[in-house]
Lab assay of single mutants.
Amino acid sequence: MEVRTIKVFTTVDNINLHTQVVDMSMTYGQQFGPTYLDGADVTKIKPHNSHEGKTFYVLPNDDTLRVEAFEYYHTTDPSFLGRYMSALNHTKKWKYPQVNGLTSIKWADNNCYLATALLTLQQIELKFNPPALQDAYYRARAGEAANFCALILAYCNKTVGELGDVRETMSYLFQHANLDSCKRVLNVVCKTCGQQQTTLKGVEAVMYMGTLSYEQFKKGVQIPCTCGKQATKYLVQQESPFVMMSAPPAQYELKHGTFTCASEYTGNYQCGHYKHITSKETLYCIDGALLTKSSEYKGPITDVFYKENSYTTTIK
Rank of each mutant, 00 (worst) to 15 (best):
V3F: 13
K7R: 15
K7G: 10
F9E: 07
F9D: 10
F9C: 08
V12Y: 03
N14P: 07
I15W: 08
V22K: 03
D23K: 13
S25L: 15
S25P: 02
M26P: 04
T27L: 14
T27F: 08
Q30R: 15
Q31D: 03
Q31A: 13
F32C: 11
F32H: 15
F32P: 02
P34S: 13
Y36V: 02
L37W: 14
G39S: 13
A40G: 14
A40M: 13
T43F: 07
T43Q: 14
K46G: 06
K46N: 10
P47A: 08
P47G: 04
H48Y: 14
H48E: 10
S50I: 12
S50G: 11
S50H: 13
E52A: 12
G53V: 04
K54D: 07
T55E: 08
T55P: 07
F56G: 00
V58N: 05
V58T: 10
V58R: 10
V58L: 11
L59Q: 12
P60W: 08
D62Y: 07
D62G: 07
D63Y: 07
R66Q: 14
A69S: 09
D77Y: 02
P78K: 03
P78G: 15
S79L: 14
S79R: 11
F80G: 00
L81N: 00
G82C: 15
Y84H: 03
M85I: 15
S86V: 13
S86Q: 15
L88Q: 03
L88W: 13
L88D: 00
N89L: 05
K92A: 05
K93N: 14
W94D: 01
V99T: 11
N100V: 10
N100C: 02
T103Q: 05
S104P: 04
S104C: 00
D109K: 15
N111T: 03
N111H: 03
N111G: 02
C112S: 15
Y113T: 02
A115T: 07
A117W: 01
A117G: 07
A117T: 14
L119P: 03
Q122L: 02
Q123V: 00
Q123S: 06
I124E: 03
I124W: 04
E125V: 04
E125Y: 07
L126D: 02
K127E: 12
N129Y: 09
P130S: 10
L133V: 01
L133P: 01
Q134Y: 05
Q134W: 03
D135I: 09
A136R: 01
A136H: 10
Y137L: 13
Y138M: 15
Y138N: 15
E144P: 02
L151N: 02
Y155N: 01
Y155H: 04
C156R: 04
K158V: 03
G161E: 04
L163D: 09
G164C: 07
G164R: 01
V166R: 02
R167F: 12
M170F: 09
M170E: 03
M170K: 00
S171F: 13
Y172G: 10
L173T: 01
F174S: 03
H176A: 04
L179W: 05
L179A: 02
D180W: 05
D180G: 12
C182V: 09
C182E: 03
R184H: 03
V185W: 03
V185H: 03
N187F: 06
V188A: 00
V188S: 06
V188Y: 07
V188T: 14
K191D: 13
T192P: 04
T192D: 14
Q195H: 12
Q195T: 13
Q196C: 13
Q196W: 13
Q197N: 09
Q197D: 06
G202K: 06
G202N: 07
Y208I: 08
G210Q: 08
G210P: 02
L212D: 04
S213A: 06
E215P: 08
Q216C: 07
F217T: 05
F217S: 05
F217H: 05
V221W: 09
P224H: 11
C225F: 03
C227R: 02
G228L: 02
K229E: 14
K233N: 05
Y234A: 08
Q238S: 04
Q238P: 04
Q238R: 02
P241L: 04
M244W: 12
A247N: 10
Q251L: 15
Q251F: 07
Y252F: 14
E253V: 10
E253I: 15
L254Y: 12
K255S: 07
G257N: 12
G257Y: 00
G257R: 01
T258P: 04
C261A: 03
C261R: 01
A262K: 03
A262V: 04
A262E: 03
A262N: 00
E264K: 03
Y265H: 08
T266E: 15
G267K: 13
N268R: 14
N268T: 14
Q270L: 14
G272E: 14
G272K: 09
H273W: 10
K275S: 10
I277T: 04
T278Q: 13
S279N: 08
C285P: 05
I286H: 06
D287H: 01
D287S: 07
L290V: 13
L290H: 15
T292H: 14
K293D: 07
S294K: 11
S295H: 08
S295K: 11
E296M: 15
E296C: 14
Y297T: 03
Y297K: 01
Y297R: 07
K298G: 07
G299L: 06
V304C: 06
F305Y: 09
K307I: 10
K307V: 11
N309T: 14
N309C: 12
T312S: 10
T314V: 10
T314L: 11
